[in-house]
Design a binder for these strands. Sequence first.
DNA 1: CTTGCTCCTCTAGTAGCTGGAGGAGCTAAG
DNA 2: CTTAGCTCCTCCAGCTACTAGAGGAGCAAG
Lengths: 143, 143
Amino acid sequence: MAERGFSIGEASERSGVKVTTIRFYENIGLISPPVRTSGNRRQYGEEEVDRLTFIRHARELGFEIDDIRGLLAMTERPNASCQEADRIARHHLKGVNHRISQLTLLGKELQRMIDECGHGRVCDCRVIQTLADHSHCQHHQSD
Amino acid sequence: MAERGFSIGEASERSGVKVTTIRFYENIGLISPPVRTSGNRRQYGEEEVDRLTFIRHARELGFEIDDIRGLLAMTERPNASCQEADRIARHHLKGVNHRISQLTLLGKELQRMIDECGHGRVCDCRVIQTLADHSHCQHHQSD
DNA sequence: CTTGCTCCTCTAGTAGCTGGAGGAGCTAAG
DNA sequence: CTTAGCTCCTCCAGCTACTAGAGGAGCAAG
């Protein structure tokens, strides 16, 4: 029963979360401070490594730290409804889809700008002209 | 010839760049410090407003400040080749397209996660399970 | 005992702003 | 003349999610 546990370096390797990032997560209270060895070193168990892995997956999927706080809290109450998890995920997906459409528009605009560039002098450059152009000034605060 | 010029607030309205952001751009040297009135207030002319508008357009298209520095420098040399503008724009477009493909993958993953959620308890939740799941642990540092 | 690795804490930096404190100018009404 | 209310001024802290570095200590092997 006397598990020895992992050093922060081992926990990092197993979870795929960098050492400095683990400490950062502890600082901001995303994970709780682990026990320490006599030499003041952090010691992690399987559970904590799983938690870190969970966090990494969620970050890779673009969830914000605050979302992850919520998701982690849910894993502590396995019998509760997963409505909240669903809500967080849906909200996030909406954000992702929005960003995709924004970026797609933006990509088209860039492509058009580049295509129209005659590769001559700056004063004839479509890239520069497009940026300077007042004609598509709508002051839209989109994004 | 004695142009009165615009206050920072007017310049902000005309360019669509917020007052605080204009001051910030001045601080980081993206725009040069304007003349001041006797009362120490910044005074801008048409040219400076155009410059701010240019910056706003470029920012809306997602160009980084350093890119914009380069693009602005080019507008100062209208007879130079626009090769560099083209290069900056192409590089940026590449980044945008990359982000789009990343986000698209991510969106699919999220959608799958959400679709598979049975809306029951947390312990059965596909969202939570997916995040905790070790099976797609590749430690890929992609992004 | 020394070398070299990991670990510790603390601080500051990244990008691109945003917001607040605390004060001054400017305009118009009372 | 004074007061109110607006904009403006500077400076500094905070946001996100980390990352990097300084300066020091534990620890294992040779």
